[in-house]
Structure formats: C-alpha cells, structure tokens
Write a protein that binds this DNA or RNA. Structure first.
Length: 483
RNA sequence: GCCCCCAUCGUCUAGAGGCCUAGGACGCCACCCUUUCAAGGUGGAGAUCACCGGUUCGAAUCCGGUUGGGGGCGCCA
C-alpha cells in the first residue's frame, strides 16, 4: 500500500488499503506500507499522521513500513518513505540515461503547455512530441547557457504490453501510442511512475493491488520494469468508489476523509465492513463480518470489475447494527468523547441502554443526552407552550393534566417502574390516552417531543430537577403565554 | 481526439448455460408492537438481467456489435 501524504486518508485509499490487507492476511503474505512523498511541495507530516492514525483506527496493520507518523521503520528494505530514497532513484535514472533508455529534455513547462493546447485544439492525443530526442551537443549547450535545466524523459518502446490482471484478466495496451514521459523533474525530483517501479523491485513487492485509475498507467510501469531489468510483479486493479453520479469519488461531491466519518461517530468496524462490501461479496447472504472474518473469506479474484457508488444510507444502517451489538460498557466508553463533560460517568452508563437502539452515529448521543447536560433555562428554550399540547387539547386542559401528572410522579418512588405505574394510573383516572398524557411531561423534562424512554429519562435527570422542570412548564401554561 | 475498463431492482449485491416466473440487503410504502422516536416483526412496490444479433434443445450467464458510463493520456500521485 502506497499512500501519498498530500491529503487526509481518503475513503478510496482506505478501501484499497483494506483490500491489500485482506489479501495479504488471507494468503499469509507480508503487507508493506510505503509513504509516497516525492511531491515535497504537497506532502506534509500532518497528512502522514492522519493517514497512519486512521489506518490504525480501522484496524489495518502492516508488517513493513513506518509504524507511526514520524516513527521508525520496521522491515529490511527501508527506508519506507520515498523522500529518504532519493539516492537510489538517482542511480537508476543514471543507468537509464547511460543505456539510452532515457534522455534529457530541455523543454520548459510553458513550451510543453503550448504544444499540449495545440494538440487538444486539433483533437489530437496530448503527448510529448519528441522534440529533445535528437538534440546536438550544440543545442544542449545553448539550452544550458540559457539557464535551462533538463528533465529526464523515458523513451517508451513502441511495443504491445500484455499483462494478466488479478481482477480483470488479460489486458493489452499499445505503448506505441504513448508519448515519452518525464521520470525526473528538472529540479532533480523523481516522479511517481519511476519511483514506484524502483521501490517495488527493491522492496520485493510481488503483488500490486491498487485502484482502477492506475490500470492505464500499468503499461508505463511495465515498460520501465523491462528497461531496468526488474522482475514484474502481479497487478490487480480494483474498481473505483463512485459519487452518486457515478464519477470517481471526489472531495467536491462527497465526504471523502476517513477522519470526518470518525468524527461523526462511525465505528471502525462498521466502516471496514461497509468498505469491504463495496466491490466484493462472499457469495452468500451473510453481510456482517469482522475484519478477521473478512480476511479469512476474502478472495482477490472475487473482486468486482465495476465501480460501486458510496451509499451513505447503507453505512448508517451498518453503523446502527454495530452500535447495537456493542456491550453497554463498551458503548459508554466509545460515547465519552461525544457527550458533554457535564454528563457524569454514572449518568452516561445509565443513559446507554436508553439510547442504544436510537443511535445511527455516536454523535447522536449529543442530541439524545442534551437534556441531562443543559441547565433548565436552556432546555426550556427548546419548546413553546404550543409544543406541549397534545393534538386536540387546549392549554387549559393540558395544564390540568400536567398538574395531575406532576402530583402523581411526585408521590411515587423515583424508579422507572414506579414512575410508569403512577403515570399510567394518573392518565387513566384523568381519562387521557397515555401517549397524550405523557407528551407534556416529556417535553417539559427533555425539552423535545422525541426523547429516550420517558421514565428512564426522569430517573437519570433526578427527582428534584425533573419536578422543577414540570413546575416551570406549569407556570408557563398558567401564565397563558401563547407561543 | 486516442487508448483502456465496465454494464443484474434507486443503491450495494447473489448469480460462473437449465435450480431464475432473477434471491438477499439498504432505502421506500403498509401493517403489527409501542409513552415519543427508534429497534424488532410481517407484508408490499421495485430489474423486459443496457440494447441488437449470434452460439445452444435451452443464456442474466458464452461470442460479436451498438449504446451508455467510467478511467487514463501532467516536470501530480
């Protein structure tokens, strides 16, 4: 797996990492992580940290590579950061230059841009025109005195490249259609297509599993591999994750950062399960799998060829499934970062059984437990007198009912069972349906028409605060405030 | 423009010639349960398997073409 720290861990990169992980674990191989940070201008330590942290969060572990951001490498073929391997790339570039498989190109970006624009305008394939292929020494001297620095271009042999893709089977390209591409920039920085091939060889990579967007880059890599005399790895190109409009999933149209999902309260187990099924299925009707189970079932050859739309509804459903499957104590621990600090450990433990079946994301706890953390005045601000009234009931009628409810509850033991018994008895003697009777209580205490189970909520809030909120509601009702 | 890849319900998918009058899940709708909302249960709508040819006794499954979609063609990765 070779992420580039030019942005936070992307959904697509996470899924590619996952498939690599599952494949490696399934076949008992060695999983290597390499940081592709040759683009110094865009790579940051912060993004590297985000990528490694979130990979850890998902439970994806690797055998070789930097284990933590800024940490030491593990493995015999390091360093595993490309920025630390520049001398190796320079040596290989020299070899190619020596053999004539590569040549210096003195064209400036501006000149290349002009050519490319012209090609596009005349509906031609945008490719290098080979201008620097047959330069004389005088030409080169001239360019040098102009202050130009040459880039290194690979002379792509015009031949048909065939390879057997793990997922797509036989694939064939005509490299005669390709232009010579740059492998080392004028400033000496080697480029992706070049370094990836060198590292794969030097790190003993046997299987390259990556996104389908690299399928048409593969013939370039194979040409380079042959020119360098390397062993050819096996390639597997997995389908892309798509925006709802079926284009490649992008930041512009979808939420792509794993961190964002993490911060919104998605569970890593749900994320992994969801991602694994975006492009693969075990061929049965089972759908809930842990990472380990996935690793034992996963077959790279079963991966689909077509892209898969990222369906947030399905992720939400899976997240709910995983939340409900968590033991209460475990859920409480995971909820801690998402509930206000004002909510005590005891209250949190008590609230878990009440909210467990009502959550899609961990962040839902903030909403569900707000009435426990906020002061009375804030909670009172969440509703109006009109909200209090059950359908078809007047303010006066509701005031009478709420007063009766308040008295009944005040006279009961402060336990869910006793409160419910008292509440139901009061509702019956008042002649109201339980649902109508409980509505003003619910709103007065929790501030909202939708809440966790009422009597458990009352117990969690406590007797005095609960009765206080009921009294406050009664006052507002009696003062005739119409809102 | 050129090259490559792909194509089963809205979405994720099962399906590797007869088991398919195409199965499951999400979402949607209805009902049940129910103190709200969920969760759960039951049922339902939803796919002429992109289209057209061909092979075959028989095709969603094999072959060809068409159409549609996607990806690539950077001194980004």
């Amino acid at each position: 797996m070779a992420p580039s720290p030019t942005g936070p861990l992307h959904i697509g990169t996470a899924r590619t990492s996952l498939y690599n992980y599952l494949f490696a674990r399934h076949v008992g191989g060695t999983y290597v992580l390499r940081i592709e940070d040759t683009d110094l201008a865009r790579s940051t330590a912060e993004f590297e940290r985000d990528i490694l942290d979130n990979l850890h969060w998902l439970g994806i572990t690797w055998d070789e590579g930097p284990q933590h951001a800024g940490g030491d490498d593990i493995g015999p073929f390091g360093p595993y950061r490309q920025s630390l391997r520049m001398d190796r790339y320079a040596r290989e570039a020299d070899r190619l230059l020596q053999s004539g498989a590569a040549y210096h190109c003195w064209c400036t970006p501006e000149e290349l841009d002009v050519v490319r624009k012209a090609q596009e305008a005349s509906k031609q394939a945008p490719r290098y025109n080979g201008r620097c292929l047959n330069l004389t020494d005088a030409d080169r001297e001239q360019f040098a005195t102009e202050g130009r620095r040459p880039a290194v271009r690979f002379r792509v042999p015009a031949e048909t490249i065939r390879f057997d893709d793990l997922i797509r089977g036989e694939v064939e390209f005509d490299n005669g259609l390709l232009g010579d591409f740059v492998i080392v920039r004028a400033d000496g920085v080697p480029l992706y297509h070049f370094v990836v091939v060198i590292d794969d060889e030097q790190m003993g990579i046997s299987h390259v599993i990556r996104g389908e967007d690299h399928l048409s880059n593969t013939p370039k890599h194979i040409a380079l591999i042959r020119a360098l005399g390397y062993a050819e790895p096996v390639f597997g190109h997995i389908p892309l994750i798509l925006n709802p409009d079926r284009s490649k999933m992008s930041k512009r149209k979808s939420q792509t950062a794993i961190t964002a999902y993490r911060e919104q309260g998605y569970l890593p187990e749900a994320m992994v399960n969801f991602l694994a099924f975006l492009g693969w299925s075990p061929g049965t009707e089972e759908e809930i799998f842990s990472l380990d189970e996935l690793a034992t079932r996963f077959e790279i050859g079963e991966v689909h060829k077509a892209g898969a739309v990222f369906d947030q509804d399905r992720l939400d459903y899976l997240n709910g499934v995983y939340i409900r499957a968590l033991p209460d104590a475990e859920l409480a621990a995971r909820l801690r970062p998402f509930v206000p600090a004002a909510v005590s450990e005891e209250t949190l433990a008590g609230v878990v059984p009440l909210v467990k079946e009502r959550m899609v994301r961990l962040t839902d706890a903030t909403e569900l437990t707000g009435f426990l953390a906020e002061p009375d005045a804030v909670v009172a601000g969440w509703w109006t007198v009109a909200d209090l009234l059950p359908k078809g009931k007047t303010a006066d009628e509701t005031g009478l009912a709420l007063a009766a409810a308040r008295d009944a509850l005040a006279g009961a033991d402060w336990s869910p069972e006793a409160l419910e018994a008292a509440g139901r008895a009061a509702a019956e003697s008042h002649g109201w349906k339980a649902g109508d009777f409980f509505r003003p209580i619910r709103i007065a205490v929790t501030g909202k028409p939708v809440s966790p189970p009422l009597f458990g909520s009352l117990v969690l809030l406590g007797r005095e605060p609960s009765l206080g909120r009921l009294d406050g509601a009664l006052d507002r009702l009696r003062s005739g405030a119409v809102a």
